[in-house]
Design a binder for these strands. Structure first.
Lengths: 111, 111
DNA sequence: TAATTATGTATTGATAAGTTATGTATATTC
DNA sequence: GAATATACATAACTTATCAATACATAATTA
């Protein structure tokens, strides 16, 4: 096992949740926010993030706008209406999943 | 996404944790216990479980004994000493991971 | 009694979600 | 001028899991 492989399968709801909470965000910002919130515990790689974002765009879950900051471009992602609905469902599933993990790892305190 | 794909990467610490708590267990029993504890939320498939158990045996994390119950055979798994050590580390990592997920999904209550 | 479900271990082929590595480019800091 | 941070992107590879299948016995149900 590898510490960093734990979140396989959870990345999608994680990203969607952050977009729901913060509105417009760009890729690099998402990686930094995850790192910051989890105090460095979760680090999203670009190889995981960008294909995911593109997939979400393809599916109509997010929509994008480009913006130029100085000479660099940024691609901002926003949840669509359908995306927000989706997010609610996924985050709920993730919560249930967390609860399930808790029941196994902390059988006494988790109820 | 698929609800059942959430726990990719978490199965190993889950199984090891159960073995640590309950001592000797057999494969089918592990699947049933996970299902029971999580009220049906997590269902371990054989295609995931048995290869994992075999891998753990290969690595010296668990050791096995066969037993005949009636006419059916059962293969019991027990953590080795090294396995118990490993388990402590992995479960700790899983706890940290759960905490990280919580920080993202429940930013207000999780601290 | 025939069919289905539960118990029990195991393997195979396919898939998808990651990692690692690489590429491009600008801005900043030492 | 070298290293680091910012910013997007893709390609090749790995691997953990699923779905399906296989085999076998016991128990239940129609």
């Amino acid at each position: 096992m590898n510490k960093s492989t734990l979140y396989k399968g959870c990345l999608e709801p994680i990203i969607m949740r952050l977009l729901k909470d913060n509105g417009r965000m760009y890729g690099y910002q998402l990686t930094q926010m995850v790192k910051e919130i989890t105090k460095g515990e979760l680090q999203i790689t670009e190889g995981a993030l960008y294909p995911l974002l593109h997939r979400l765009e393809e599916q109509g879950v997010v929509e994008t706008e480009m913006e130029n900051i100085g000479n660099r471009m940024r691609k901002y992602y926003t949840l669509t209406k359908a995306g927000k609905k989706q997010t609610a469902v996924y985050v709920d599933e993730l919560r249930t999943f967390i609860q399930s993990l808790n029941l196994i790892v902390n059988p006494k305190t988790a109820g």
